[in-house]
Design a protein around this nucleic acid. Structure first.
Lengths: 362, 362
DNA sequence: TTGAAAGCGCTAACAT
DNA sequence: ATGTTAGCGCTTTCAA
């Protein structure tokens, strides 16, 4: 390994001179000296050791990113945006970890980040609590949390960036209502996170506003056990299959996210139902995969790239002043992408005691 | 930050004693001493600094992983498997980088890995050349390359793990032939990598064996510009759309991979063709997404997890002996998963001059 | 059984 | 304009 000593020797200068050029202080020396040093660096292909620099400065250009699973296309997409921006804007690299929604793995990852001296971390946790994040902050980390709002009341030192989940679900539900659906459902998985409850509230808010609250219901597809990649789609499929055999099922369904929606459609189809003729489905996320399905999935697009950038920008705030870092940003730029998975509700096969007022437009 | 000094002071021992317990040499001291040290470590929540350790030992528990794009579900899946195994088996964390298939970005990532002292790296490159990998090896890195075989003739210092792409494509093509298809095509993107050419050869080998070579063709959907996440599916869609309007199109298509196949199906449908009634499609990869489409995609499952583990295991070989490290492993455990996207060919609309012998079974 | 001390590669005072 | 040097947190001889 070539060191700063080698360079100094090769250029016949002292190590501090080399260090000066490394740190952009080339103006402190004669041009000829600078040139010699630069030549030596190039010749020897010298790259200063990050660990030595870190030991000295306490800084390391590494960003920690914690996700439930990298195999989930949504997190893969966020991760890529975070990584790209962190690299382009700050020259940081990404130290990533999948936690499988496990508290112990999450804690272990934080411990390792700390040991590595990583002081900037973005967390996409599906744990209910987030106190462990505060303790990370207490140890000097800048942490940003994705997809949840600051817990009300309890002042937090961690920053928050989240899409407007309430609005996203409201929009999705409103679209179904506008198409004439009166029997609505929100399909989710077991376990209540802030993001999920916000969506559920948005769902009910839209139903309420249309006087459809009584028939609106939440479908819990069960737990997300094991490896969290495809499983949310599997839960969706199971829910879809079950729904297919339910004669009193909702005709308009909002899914927790696109993967769940895709699974839902597969399950519905497996059960012999057609989307959107028998049931309409709308997702939330706006994954590119939603444009590939048959029928193409109508979904609510979230501003992923903007959020990724905002998280990076904020987590990098040098000051670490709690004011700036602990800010909460809710991104409301959610928009409905109408595709093919939503249509008018089927006309009721027979008189249903559930039928509400306003008999859908023909 | 609490250091080994703090622990030593707190336990009233020297730093070397603390270091000894950190490095599993607790047997060198009196149990009471060990206990005191351990208590101090726990009380102070001490974690030794990785950068200090690295500076001293030259080792860092970080694995570099280079992928074209983390937003691609296939790479996300591989990355997760690599990460999980590296963590569980070796206690390593993952330093990941998306290269967008760009040589400069790839080189920059390697430079950074070197600066960080990372000595183990797994590369999924879509660059034609791989000399840059050899130079990384020359600088002391252990590198494993995924999805390509060692260049024949030129002895390489980098290890190789790859699925049997020839066999995967042969299997996919053979399935189409068994179903009666005589007009075959292989849908790919612009740019020839070793993996792609192996698949194409497997495709032709199967066609040849059935006397179908003359009508078998390769469809090049064009370049994969920009951000490589959804774009391969977009190329697939464009190819599918074009195919839909081609009256002399193949009836059985093998796609480069599942994402391309999914796009292909979307394009075909957009163009008014039905899968599998008008055209049969088979993918390669075995992504969970392939089970979600309508029709569900018939595909060739690759042993991703096994390959991920093999790569990690091999890249970690301490010896760095070129013999063990530069090994090439071709995983032939590929198997066809029959789903719904393949059926018998449509009966020819009218006499076609192309029609080969053996008029498909009814 | 325990401790003292050198040194890994670098940065940044502080000389000169 | 350039050089000397202390020291970041740790591991590891070598001594005691």
């Amino acid at each position: 390994m070539t060191t700063i000593q080698d360079v100094a020797r090769h250029a016949a200068v002292s190590v501090s001179t080399v260090s000066n050029v490394l740190n952009g202080r080339g103006d402190r020396m004669r041009p000829a000296t600078l040139a010699r040093v630069e030549a030596a660096i190039a010749t020897l292909q010298f790259r200063p050791s990050k660990s030595a620099q870190q030991l000295k400065t306490g800084q390391t250009p590494l960003l920690g990113l914690l996700v439930p699973s990298m195999a989930n296309p949504m997190y893969g997409y966020i991760a890529r945006e975070v990584e790209t921006f962190a690299q382009e804007r700050f020259g940081y690299r990404l130290l990533i970890g999948s936690t499988y929604r496990d508290a112990a793995k999450e804690a272990a990852f934080f411990e390792d980040l700390r040991a590595h001296g990583v002081r900037h971390v973005i967390v996409i946790s599906s744990l209910a609590e987030e106190r462990h994040l505060d303790s990370a902050v207490a140890r000097g980390m800048n942490v940003m949390s994705y997809d949840r709002r600051a817990a009300p009341g309890r002042p937090s030192a961690v920053g928050h960036v989240t899409p407007d989940n309430f609005e996203a679900a409201r929009l999705a539900t409103g679209h179904l209502i506008a198409k004439g659906h009166t029997r609505l459902a929100f399909a989710t998985v077991a376990g209540m996170t802030m993001s999920r409850s916000d969506k559920i509230e948005g769902f009910f808010a839209a139903a309420d506003a249309a006087g459809l609250r009584a028939s609106a219901k939440v479908l819990d597809g069960g737990p997300l056990n094991e490896y969290g990649d495809s499983v949310i789609a599997e839960v969706g499929r199971a829910t879809g299959l079950q729904l297919a055999n339910d004669s009193r099922r909702a005709t308009g369904i909002v899914a927790l996210n696109d993967l769940m929606a895709l699974g839902l459609m597969a399950g519905l189809r497996e059960g012999g139902r057609h989307v959107p003729q028998d049931v309409s489905v709308v997702g939330i996320d706006g994954l590119f995969l939603a444009a590939l399905s048959d029928p193409m999935l109508t979904t609510v697009q979230l501003p992923i790239r903007d959020m990724a950038r905002a998280m990076v920008e904020q987590v990098m705030q040098a000051g670490a002043g709690a004011e700036a870092l602990a800010r909460e940003r809710v991104f409301s730029e959610v928009r409905l992408i109408e595709r093919e998975s939503v249509g008018p509700p089927p006309r009721p096969a027979r008189s249903s005691p559930m039928t509400k007022a306003r008999t859908a437009k023909k």
